[in-house]
Design a protein around this nucleic acid. Structure first.
Lengths: 296, 296
DNA sequence: TTTAGTTGTTTAGCATACCTCAATAAAAAA
DNA sequence: TTTTTTATTGAGGTATGCTAAACAACTAAA
């Protein structure tokens, strides 16, 4: 005989009775389900009425199952136990898999890694795996839980969901030896950028610079740009949040040019459900960045 | 590990997903649960969000389970199957037990038995067992499902629940040879009743008769009273509903005295749940008696 | 015995989990 | 192509199941 849902009483009633049977009283079951004992009593009575069988007799202060009730409770405990096992297995097997995060080297070094100890303190059971990569990878087919990406304006990543984390100005920075004391004339200095990369050329244009006439230090590897700037080889631009520490320490100086625009950092996830661990990480990241943001 | 209810997602969501898994589409599951397919889609998505795992992917016109979904569905089908088996076993074992009805000979002969074919036509699977008894028996300790009892005024049977079925006037009847043509002087006729039975003496008093001066035919067995009346041995009183057929056929004539009061028939059940079969019988009885009542 | 604490019962009223409705999109069948 | 079936989404409604509160019944401690 195949499972027929129409023949089953309300699942809430079955749940209430199952726990009552194991705990021996309505009150105990109620505490465990976070409801009042009146609710449990109602469900059990409704189940009795539905089945037309007395399941529990009130014996003084607690309840005693009838013979029929005992047999039913056994089936319920077995059945719900199987269900709980299946759910638990699904949850367990994800517990071990680390949260896989794709992001750029800059973001991970400047923002995520320095604060990670705080996350591990709050969620010691969650493994985190960060993969820094040069360009945006396909997190869906590679099985990543999320990426941290920045973009100017509205995000447009098809098949992905973007949740805003933080907004940060794009600023120009250079080594103190290069920038110190200067007020203008920065278009005569060497700028560190990659020719042919649309975003970088657009950014320079937004600074009011002519990419054609500019002296260009092209290292080809974006992750090295700030390193070069720190060594005084030229002026680079970056999101303020990424260089804040170096500005504070004096390793870099801000070039006195107004920020042409800001970029927004997003937590990007595949459409569909998000693993609880990944959700925990995103929530933590959002809080952390918000805290960093106000302390600017 | 013991079953922990707090770790389980909503049971409605699990139910929706289980049936979706077996039927292969939201729409099919929705039809079987008598809900819209939008409801199913919502439940499944909520389950996915809760677990943080994709369970079903859209594959063209229907849905295909993911690997995780397949495993979960197996547990769910097993678990809910066990539960359904337990419930079904409880229902089956009552199916065979007949509905046990305690009532008086009069009521069963005049009201229940003549209409029983109609009940069997509507509920061929329900067994009915009628026990006619002289006085009210303890239906709780004897395990009866219900009794049919009449009383004047408000019912008062402790430990029992009484549902009104029908009201019927108490009238006086006699054989045509005895009553035919007479207009009054019935207090001079022999009356059939049992001395010492409170209800019968009160009834006579209500008719305006003096039990002390009345000629008394006391047969001792209430079930024989109407038989004696039919044979012309005296005048008896009874509820109108019980003698209607004999009045119609002319076997009995109504004595032209106004009815002093009416009695109400009740379906009486033990407190607590009522077996579905017994409930079916009571519902049928109520309808049947209501139909008989209006055709008076 | 009295008193205090725990538990079950009942009712009315309320809240929210779950559903319907309606409009859209997309795939398969006709 | 048009028609039919199915999934998706968001807004809004409602029935199930809950809370609240007052009571009754029992137990155990004072």
């Amino acid at each position: 005989m195949e499972l027929d849902w129409k023949a089953l009483p309300s699942l809430a009633s079955l749940r209430a009775f199952e726990l009552t049977a194991r705990r021996g009283s309505f009150a105990a079951a109620a505490r465990e389900l976070n409801v009042t004992h009146a609710a449990i009593a109602q469900r059990v009575r409704s189940l009795e009425a539905d089945l037309g069988v007395s399941l529990a007799r009130r014996a003084g202060r607690s309840v005693v199952l009838t013979e029929a009730g005992t047999r039913l409770a056994q089936h319920l405990t077995d059945g719900f136990g199987t269900i709980a096992d299946g759910v638990q297995a699904l949850r367990d097997e994800q517990q071990d898999v680390p949260v896989q995060i794709a992001t750029t080297l800059h973001i991970s070094q400047a923002v995520v890694i320095p604060e990670l100890h705080d996350f591990w303190r709050k969620h010691p059971e969650i493994q985190v795996s960060i993969l820094p990569s040069r360009e945006a990878v396909d997190i869906v087919s590679l099985g990543f839980d999320l990426a941290i990406r920045a973009t100017r304006g509205e995000p447009d990543w098809p098949g992905l969901v973007a949740e805003p984390l933080l907004e940060s100005d794009i600023i120009a920075v250079g080594a103190p030896s290069l920038v110190g004391g200067m007020k203008d004339g920065f278009d005569a200095m060497p700028w560190i950028w990659s020719a042919g990369v649309g975003f970088e050329e657009n950014t320079l244009a937004a600074f009011g610079l002519d990419t054609g006439a500019l002296r260009n230090v092209d290292i080809g590897v974006p992750s090295m740009q700030l390193t070069l700037a720190r060594q005084g080889l030229g002026i680079a631009f970056a999101a303020e949040i990424l260089v804040r520490d170096e500005l504070a320490s004096g390793d870099l100086l801000r070039v006195p040019m107004p920020s042409p625009f800001a970029v927004t950092y997003y937590a990007v996830t595949p459409v569909g459900p998000i693993r609880p661990q990944a959700q925990d990480f995103i929530s933590w990241l959002k809080e952390t960045l918000a805290r960093m943001s106000v302390s600017r």
